[in-house]
Design a protein around this nucleic acid. Structure first.
Lengths: 120, 120
DNA sequence: CGCCTTGTCAACCATTCGGTTGAGAAATGC
DNA sequence: GCATTTCTCAACCGAATGGTTGACAAGGCG
């Protein structure tokens, strides 16, 4: 399993079923059984998915009798958002600089370094 | 391999090496060899990583003689950002509603539905 | 031309992943 | 106490991952 937190979060959300569980947990907490109900897999499989989400810090489980209510920990989203935004901004910054360079270029549309003497 | 685009993007960024490549590509395009240089793996491994990034739409490769310059396609970030923001907002919305409920509750700290007749 | 550089393809290997089934722990309720 | 509900643990399985090495295609360059 990936050691660093960011990898764990990205990996956790790389699965459609897990993403759907997270989506549903934004509405309300749910037990393992409730979460499992819509999917065509065993409860055990869902339990495994929850472990992945929990290891990523996206979810926490408490207890209520036999039930294990699952709660979304939405703050972890920030980890990803920060990473994405940082590099998105950096990429945009780069394009901006590239634009400046292009803008500073002569109107003359000579394809490459026009060296010595007019062509024709 | 995951079919849906969102899964592919998340999965692609779930690897530290690939994230680092993306980070470096926000600064400038690079060839496969240049990209491979800092890592302690074969060029083939890096080539595979690039394929994953390319399949996720995060990167495109063109050609320049033997070289294959790699270019970042930062727009795909939006896919993730949209998903994350949507559910982050939904989660916040939920907490806000929960707060309203709590605020509307009586100061009386009776634990559950106090039914008929004062206790003592 | 022959060689060197750059990169991909193919085969292989160990590990991880998502799923299964079976067993059992923990708590409730008759 | 005993059956039932809810969930996890363990073992197993097939497919995908991330890595390797070896072969080779494509394109300058001496």
């Amino acid at each position: 399993m990936a050691a660093d937190p960011l990898s764990r979060v990205f990996a956790a959300l790389a699965d459609p079923t897990r993403r759907d569980m997270v989506a549903r947990l934004t509405v309300a907490d749910a037990t393992v059984g409730e979460l499992a109900e819509p999917y065509d897999v065993s409860v055990q499989a869902v339990s495994k998915h929850l472990r992945v989400l929990e290891d990523a810090g996206l979810v926490s489980r408490s207890r209520d009798a036999q039930r294990r209510p699952v709660h979304l920990e939405a703050e972890v989203f920030d980890l990803m958002t920060k990473w994405i935004e940082r590099y998105r901004r950096q990429a945009e910054e780069r394009y901006r600089r590239l634009d400046d360079v292009l803008r500073a270029m002569p109107d003359d549309p000579s394809p490459t370094t026009p060296r010595e003497g007019t062509p024709s």
